[in-house]
């Protein structure tokens, strides 16, 4: 379990996360939603231990030690800083040198499912193909928690559909959890188990979507919008 306990974060004097408490179990697809600038990226980076919280704790399986954290958590950033002269193949070799849990064979399988040409230079790739490559590289890692920051933003519907299909195809929900930030509920409402809403520096909602459907008669999109009216 990945857990945030009383987590607070601020940039200079601007408090982004005030008091975040959340428990993330293994074996789920979870959507993290919230208005632009509400702190979703900061929260994901804290969970990935890429930023230290100003107050509070991030615990992995009850422990704060960071020793095995890097192998357990894969963070996929919104922007990408891949070397533009690399091709896909070189990127995978680079990932192999950076992450002990990276498996060439898995990354290649995903790349082939997404019909990527691994010989093409990243500088020549379309935005859609860069996103596909980013996903293949991220899920080439054998992690327990995949934290994806805005995986669908700015992509056309065909690419988004491709990415959703790969999530269904390649994530073993017996061993892993995906937490992804997005407000594109149409893309994810059918594949998400839970919805989390970050608002005013806190997680105000963390709910199972089957419950939302039965109790409130709403899908993820309506439920999300109901908090901003």
């Amino acid at each position: 379990m990945l857990e945030a306990r009383n987590v607070q974060y601020q940039y200079n004097k601007r408090v982004v996360l005030e008091d975040v408490n959340v428990q993330i179990e293994l074996g789920k697809i979870i959507v993290l939603a919230g208005e632009n600038g509400c702190g979703k990226t900061t929260f994901l980076k804290l969970l990935a231990k890429l930023l230290p919280p100003k107050q509070g704790q991030i615990l992995l399986n009850g422990s704060q030690t960071a020793r095995d954290t890097l192998a357990s958590i894969a963070f996929m950033p919104d922007d990408q800083h891949f070397h533009p002269y690399f091709n896909g193949e070189q990127l995978f070799y680079f990932f192999e040198t950076q992450f002990h849990d990276f498996q060439q064979s898995k990354a290649r399988e995903i790349a082939s499912f997404l019909k990527l040409d691994l010989a093409e230079k990243i500088s020549k790739m379309s935005k859609g193909n860069i996103s596909r490559l980013k996903l293949a590289a991220t899920f080439g890692r054998r992690s327990c928690y995949y934290l994806l920051d805005e995986p669908f933003e700015g992509l056309d519907p065909l690419v988004r559909e491709d990415l959703v299909k790969s999530l269904i195809q390649f994530v073993d929900l017996e061993k892993a959890t995906i937490l992804m930030s997005t407000n594109e509920m149409d893309d994810v409402s059918k594949i998400a188990d839970e919805l989390m809403i970050l608002k005013d520096g806190k997680i105000i909602i963390h709910e199972n979507l089957d419950v939302v459907r039965s109790v409130h008669g709403m899908d993820a999109k309506e439920w999300f919008q109901s908090f901003y009216k």
Partner: peptide, 14 residues
Amino acid sequence: VREFALEVGVNTNT
């Protein structure tokens, strides 16, 4: 399970 999940577009837990 996975084939059916892909076919209808839901996750494998469902």
